[in-house]
């Protein structure tokens, strides 16, 4: 076992990120240990998908460092990044299946590109992974013929085809009905039982509490808490509790006051003219 094997699978330190002038991630520090399921939670626009994209090396941070399986994602040369990417699996929110390939072609793609296995062996491995995600017999279908839940499961099968050490899942149950979403949670738990490290980005509370070993809560680009499920539930942080209890903090709706303000503004405009 190398030194990297013993360390954290993902290590993010003092990460800052901007979209133009706007800061979207602020001093993010995160550590994912081998074999655990880390759920990154937060509302829409909290920065969780942006954080994932930075960890995967799809975007460059303004400041800070990111290491995945010991590789410095920000500064590593292309060859080191390629080697690291063979050891990770990623399932995107939309599935991101290549529309020109069949289900089987999509799942086999990493094997075809990175190994010298013969086609029959690749087919066997592809069928095993499709069976793992309960989609046996679908290898000849095209992505356009699949439902939303099936697309997510094929994406998961593709993500695990190379037997990766860590799997990243972006909103695995978003847009799915509760039954199918629960099925995906079961798949994630089944995957965890194989010893794979999982980093799951989601805004689904029920799903997060079901699958997580630890939860990181993001809000407005900042980490509010990163701890065990029990500690997150017991957190006294108001913003964490607001997220957990789905408390909505909207200003009070007062139609009369709005009408009065509108009339006053209109009168001002008439006076000016």
């Amino acid at each position: 076992m190398s030194a990297n094997d013993a360390g954290a699978v993902v290590e993010v330190a003092h990460l800052d990120a901007h979209y133009g002038e706007r800061q979207v991630l602020r001093d993010i520090n995160l550590r994912v240990e081998p074999g655990e399921v880390m759920v990154i939670m937060g509302g829409s626009g909290s920065g969780k998908t942006t954080l994932l994209r930075h960890v995967l090396g799809l975007q460059r941070p303004t400041a800070g460092s990111i290491r995945v399986l010991g590789v410095d994602v920000v500064a590593a040369p292309r060859r080191a990044m390629q080697d690291m990417r063979k050891k990770i699996g990623v399932a995107f929110q939309s599935g991101a299946l290549l529309s020109s390939l069949t289900v089987g072609g999509n799942v086999m793609l990493p094997l075809r590109e990175h190994t010298k296995l013969d086609v029959d062996t690749m087919r066997i491995m592809m069928r095993l992974k499709l069976d793992f995600v309960d989609l046996a017999g679908t290898e000849d279908l095209m992505p356009a013929e699949l439902s939303g839940g099936m697309i997510k499961r094929v994406a998961l099968a593709r993500a695990i085809i190379m037997d990766p050490r860590v799997v990243f899942l972006d909103e695995p149950s978003a847009g799915l009905d509760p039954v199918i979403a629960a099925g995906l949670d079961e798949l994630i738990l089944r995957l965890r039982a194989t010893g794979v490290t999982l980093v799951v980005v989601t805004h689904e509370l029920q799903s997060a509490f079901k699958i997580a070993d630890r939860i990181t809560v993001l809000d407005h680009g900042e980490i509010l808490i990163s701890d065990t499920v029990a500690a997150v539930r017991a957190s006294s942080n108001e913003r964490v509790q607001a997220l957990l209890t789905r408390k909505v903090d909207l200003p009070e709706h007062n139609p009369d006051a709005f009408l009065t303000a509108l009339t006053a503004a209109s009168a001002d405009l008439d006076g000016d003219s």
Partner: peptide, 17 residues
């Protein structure tokens, strides 16, 4: 279409240039 559907990103993270 591949850019919008994140297919290019998917290729990148699979280590496929």
């Amino acid at each position: 279409m591949m850019t919008i559907n994140q297919e290019i990103d998917a290729l990148t993270v699979m280590g496929i240039n």
